[in-house]
Amino acid sequence: MTEGAGSAPIATTRSAVVFEAIRAEILGGLLKPGARLPFAKLVEKYDCSMGTLREALQRLAEIGLVESFAQQGFRVVRLSDEDLADLTEARIDIEVAALRHAVREGDIAWEGAAVASLHVLERTPRHDETSPDHLTEEWAVAHAAFHHALLSGCRNRRLLNVAAQFRDAAELYRRWSVPPSRDTARDPDEEHRAILKAAVDRDEELACRLLREHIEKAASHLE
Results as ranks from 00 to 15, higher is better:
Asp107Ala: 10
Asp81Gly: 05
Glu89Ser: 15
Ile215Arg: 06
Met1Trp: 07
Asp107Met: 03
Asp133Gln: 14
Leu60Gln: 02
Glu82Ala: 09
Ala170Asp: 03
Ala90Pro: 00
Ala140Cys: 06
Ser49Ile: 02
Arg123Tyr: 07
Arg158Trp: 12
Ala218Asn: 02
Val200Glu: 00
Arg202Ser: 03
Gly6Asn: 08
Leu222Lys: 11
Glu205Trp: 00
Leu42Asn: 02
Leu84Val: 06
Val162Lys: 14
Ser131Phe: 04
Lys32Thr: 09
Arg59Val: 05
Asn156His: 14
Leu99Ser: 02
Pro188Trp: 12
Gly4Val: 06
Ala170Asn: 06
Val76Gly: 00
Glu82Tyr: 07
Leu172His: 06
Lys197Val: 01
Thr88Tyr: 10
Glu89Arg: 15
Arg212His: 09
Thr130Glu: 15
Val141Pro: 01
Leu57Arg: 04
Gly73Val: 09
Ala169Lys: 14
Glu138Gln: 15
Arg104Phe: 07
Gly51Leu: 04
His214Phe: 05
Pro180Thr: 11
Ser177His: 13
Lys197Ile: 00
Trp139Gln: 06
Ala198Pro: 01
Gly64Phe: 05
Glu20Asn: 12
His119Ile: 10
Arg14Glu: 08
His119Glu: 11
Ala5Cys: 03
Val115Pro: 01
Val77Met: 10
Asp83Arg: 15
His192Thr: 02
Ser181Trp: 08
Glu171Phe: 08
Ser220Met: 14
Glu190Thr: 04
Ala8Thr: 15
Phe146Met: 05
Phe39Ile: 05
Ser15Cys: 04
Ala185Ile: 03
Glu129Leu: 12
Ser152Ala: 13
Ser117Ile: 12
Asp189Val: 10
Leu42Asp: 00
Ser15Ile: 04
Val162Thr: 11
Leu118Gln: 06
Val96Cys: 01
Gly6Ile: 07
Ser177Met: 14
Ser49Cys: 00
Asp93Arg: 14
Ile92Gln: 04
Arg23His: 07
Arg157Pro: 02
Ser7Trp: 10
Ala170Glu: 04
Arg155Gln: 10
Ala199Met: 05
Cys48His: 00
Val66Arg: 08
Glu44Leu: 06
Ala24Asp: 01
Leu99Cys: 03
Val18Asn: 00
Glu95Ala: 01
Asp47Cys: 02
Arg14Phe: 01
Glu191Trp: 07
Leu84Ile: 09
Ser152Trp: 08
Ser117His: 06
Leu84Glu: 07
Phe69Ala: 05
Glu129Ile: 13
Val18Gln: 01
Gly28Trp: 09
Leu159Thr: 07
Lys197His: 04
Arg182Thr: 13
Leu60Pro: 00
Arg36His: 04
Leu160Val: 11
His147Arg: 08
His127Met: 10
His147Cys: 01
Leu30Pro: 00
Ala199Gln: 03
Ala185Trp: 06
Ser80Gln: 13
Glu55Arg: 14
Leu118Val: 12
Leu159Tyr: 09
Glu191Lys: 02
Ala194Pro: 00
Met50Cys: 00
Glu122Leu: 15
Pro9Cys: 09
Glu105Lys: 04
Thr2Ile: 15
